Amino acid sequence: MSGPGAAPPGYYPDPDGAPGMVRWWDGGGWSDVLTPAGPGVSTGRGETAHRPAPSPWQPAVPVRGHGRTPWVVGAVVTAVVVLVVAVVVGTTGRGTSNPSPTVVAVPTGPTFAPGTVQIVDEDAGIAYPYLGDGWYQYALGAPLETTSVQGQYFITQDTVPDGGEFIAQITSGPVAEGYGWSGAGSEQATIETLAESVRANYYPGPNEREVLRDEATTVDGAPAWVYEFVLSWDTAGYDATGERAALVVIDTGRAAPALLYLSIPNTHAELYGVIDRVIGAVDVL
């Protein structure tokens, strides 16, 4: 379609014609990120950002100041070279009702092989959906919390005050030692430790956390624990004022459980629905 014109913000079939894909319309322009149609991203409706009021909080383990880096501290610019180019929305058929073109920053990065539908993490023992155009293969170093990493991401802000980048990501890996794992039944203790590490190491502070889910579950029949939360902050230099994220620890029967980490900054709140969608589609290998 050439553009929904006066249509309200929401997901609509991709104006470039990608089969089964939808793109977010904010009322004046198209998002640069595609996502598959399905639960949480039904066409014609959107997600509302939830931003709790910030309150003082100091991270227990300050790392590189208080900025969030893409998961691993200090590995940002050496592992992947990201070129940022200005792209005019509408040059590929995405029309808007605004005669002035909207300019967005679109990062380039390592892409998945044609035909990829799942990201298979052999080390962690899980697989989950690849979300398509606009998501790049995560090729940075392993974070503190896992011994290796697989996944997908895209950059939402090129430079933040600590010198790194801010990203949306869905990544996985085997949980590293020292985070509370002692075998079956220790999923909750492990995820509590991981949640504190993630909050201290990868987000600006002070920040406030609102827990949305903290409960036992099963993932593809395997025991698991899901911890979903919203962080909010008021820190100069960040485009986002918060983020919705989830950690899922899955007992795959291996020596170390799998950790699935999903995070969407509120600058891209229209993608919040992919969190539940991905969690619900995880396969245990």
Rank of each mutant, 00 (worst) to 15 (best):
V149K: 04
W233C: 13
A37W: 12
D283P: 00
N207S: 05
A168G: 14
P8H: 03
H66D: 14
V72S: 15
V274T: 11
Y227P: 10
A195I: 00
S42V: 13
V73Y: 07
G125T: 13
L262H: 04
D214R: 10
E208G: 02
T48K: 02
V81M: 03
G38W: 13
V73S: 10
F154L: 10
L285K: 01
T35W: 07
L144K: 02
R209A: 06
E165L: 12
L259G: 00
A222P: 10
T252H: 06
G141C: 05
G27R: 00
R209S: 04
W30N: 09
T48V: 12
S55N: 04
R213A: 15
S100E: 15
A49L: 12
V230G: 02
H268Q: 11
D16W: 04
P13E: 07
N98M: 12
A127R: 01
E228N: 11
P161Y: 02
T116L: 01
L212K: 04
L260Q: 12
N207M: 02
L247N: 04
E228A: 07
G27W: 05
P101H: 08
P36H: 07
T235W: 04
A79L: 09
A6D: 07
P107Q: 09
E270M: 11
R244M: 12
P206Q: 12
V73P: 10
V282Y: 03
G132H: 02
T217S: 11
T156Q: 07
I250M: 02
N201H: 08
T116N: 12
A49P: 12
T235L: 14
G46Q: 03
M1G: 08
A75K: 05
G28F: 00
V41F: 06
P99Y: 14
A18E: 15
P59L: 09
V175T: 11
R277A: 11
I279T: 13
Q188R: 15
T193V: 06
S55T: 06
A246L: 15
G93I: 09
A256V: 00
T156W: 10
G115W: 08
P110A: 14
Q137D: 14
W24M: 01
R199G: 14
V104S: 03
Q137Y: 04
N207D: 13
V278S: 08
F229R: 05
A79P: 07
R45H: 03
G3T: 01
A168N: 09
W233L: 09
D162Q: 09
T92L: 14
D26W: 01
A245R: 05
T43L: 08
Q152T: 07
I126L: 04
P204C: 05
V198T: 06
Q188E: 10
G20T: 13
Y130C: 03
A195D: 00
G29H: 01
G29V: 02
R23D: 15
V103A: 14
P143E: 10
Q157Y: 05
W225K: 10
